[in-house]
Amino acid sequence: MKILVPVKQVAVLDEDFELRDDGLDADPDFIDHESNEWDDYSYEAALQIMEAHGGVEVVPMTVGPEDAEESLRRCLAKGGERAIRVWDDALTGAGPATVAKLIAAVARREGADMVFAGTLSADHSYAMTGICVAAELGWPHVAVVTALEYQPGAATATVHRELEAGLVEKMTVECPAVLTIQLGINQPRYASLRGVKQAKEKPVDELSPADLGVSGEELAASASFRLRRMFKPARGQAELIEGTAAEQAARLASIIKELRGAA
């Protein structure tokens, strides 16, 4: 029984950043990378199932360039024996539906029984990828999962789906299934130093779309949108309070006092 966990290395903008000359993205000089927060929770959910039952394999995977391997090693440091990285330079800038096509191809090739994606990516926040994977595979799916009961090999899983305003829905979903895992479903573990060291030795299979039987035409056709441009939004009207911390606090205190007096 195998759980595939797609993880994303997300981009974080520096406090001062500039756009690239072509206006299609931020200048890479101002971008740092980190693991997507949601994927800590999905990976933890998979590891917990692995530890509670025999015969469960957890495989983290990513679609990303060489430096995205870091996110995979970060997973392997917590558990799991191998990872998969899919890449080809032609994938630069690929959107969620294209990434999902490749994740689905890996799920098929691996004979995965479940896919646990994150609910959202912290950089582009599409909230699409996991559901697109399910559509590619023709699998049932549930988005925004905050609790999970699953016995490996069972015909259904029982999940909580987090709705708006604190309401939760309890439901069952037939397996195999794609779940998108929400923050707070568990307490993700930290990797031990030993784990980090061991992870360096674990294999990361590198695959191209062609290895997965996905052609360049199929990838191009899968794009659900084309990016025209990125731009800095016009800023709101916030009046910035300058000065030392003491001066700033004094000003804030008087603003609050005045507004409350008026209210």
């Binding site: 949108f225 990016l227 990125m230 800095k232």
Partner: peptide
């Protein structure tokens, strides 16, 4: 043309659907 945000709302993006 649809506009949405990325990078924690720090950048906006215009998308189209040729």
């Amino acid at each position: 043309v649809a506009t949405r945000a990325g990078y924690k709302e720090k950048l906006h993006m215009d998308l189209d659907f040729p």
